[in-house]
C-alpha cells in the first residue's frame, strides 16, 4: 500500500467509528455539553467520505486539505474549526514531511492555535498532547490512548461549553477527547505507523 492509501484507510476507519458511536458521543456530550457532538461529527465525517471518494490522491497535502475543509464547512460548533484546523495544519506540514509524528504534531499545533487550550483543561488536547508525545518517541500503543482518554474524567473543564459546569464537569469523559481517541485508535489499526 502506498502512503496515501494508508492515510485514506485511516480516515475511512475513523469515519466508520464515528458513525457507529454517534449516539455514544451525543450521550457523553449530554452530560457536560449540549448533546450533539456525535451528530455534528457524523455530519462531518460523512462529508469527508463523500469528498475523498471522488478524489484520486497522490499527494498527502491534497488529501488533508480536503479533509480539513470538509470538516470546517460541515461540522460547525467548536469541533469543526478545531478538527478542521488540525487537518489544514497537517496539509501545510505534509509539503515538507510524511512522518506521521511530525504531521500529527502539526495537527496539534493547529488545534491549540485555534482553541488556545492547554493540557489539563478537559478538551481534545488532553488526548492529542500525550499521543503526539508517544508518537515522537515511537511508542504509541492503544494503552496510551486509553489512559489519556480516561484522564479527562477527573479533570475540571475550564475551556469550551463544559466549563460552565465547573466542578460538575468532573467525573465525565470529555466528548472531544473521545472522538480524538477514535481518531488515534484507527490510526494504529490502519497501519499508518507501520513501515
Amino acid at each position: 500500500m502506498s502512503t496515501t492509501e494508508k492515510w485514506i484507510s485511516w480516515i475511512s476507519q475513523f469515519t466508520d467509528q464515528i458513525i457507529e458511536h454517534k449516539a455514544d458521543l451525543n450521550q457523553l456530550d449530554s452530560a457536560i455539553g449540549d448533546g450533539d457532538h456525535g451528530s455534528n461529527m457524523d455530519r462531518g465525517v460523512k462529508a469527508v467520505k463523500e469528498k475523498i471518494d471522488q478524489g484520486d490522491y497522490e499527494e498527502l497535502t491534497d488529501l488533508f486539505k480536503d479533509i480539513g475543509m470538509s470538516l470546517v464547512s460541515k461540522v460547525g460548533g467548536a469541533s469543526g474549526p478545531l478538527y478542521g484546523s488540525a487537518f489544514i495544519s497537517m496539509a501545510k506540514a505534509s509539503k515538507e514531511t510524511d512522518d506521521p509524528s511530525l504531521l500529527l504534531e502539526a495537527g496539534l499545533d493547529g488545534i491549540t492555535k485555534r482553541g488556545k487550550a492547554d493540557p489539563g483543561e478537559k478538551t481534545m488536547v488532553d488526548v492529542w498532547h500525550p499521543v503526539v508525545d508517544s508518537l515522537k518517541k515511537g511508542t504509541l500503543a492503544q494503552s496510551d490512548i486509553d489512559e489519556a482518554l480516561e484522564s479527562t474524567k477527573d479533570m475540571k473543564a475550564t475551556k469550551g461549553r463544559a466549563s460552565y459546569l465547573g466542578d460538575r464537569s468532573i467525573g465525565h469523559i470529555d466528548p472531544g477527547a473521545q472522538s480524538s481517541a477514535y481518531l488515534f485508535s484507527t490510526l494504529l489499526e490502519a497501519g499508518v505507523l507501520d513501515d
Partner: peptide, 9 residues
C-alpha cells in the same frame, strides 16, 4: 447554523 451549533465559516 445547525440547531444549537455555530454556523460554519
Amino acid at each position: 447554523g445547525q440547531v444549537f451549533t455555530s454556523p460554519t465559516p
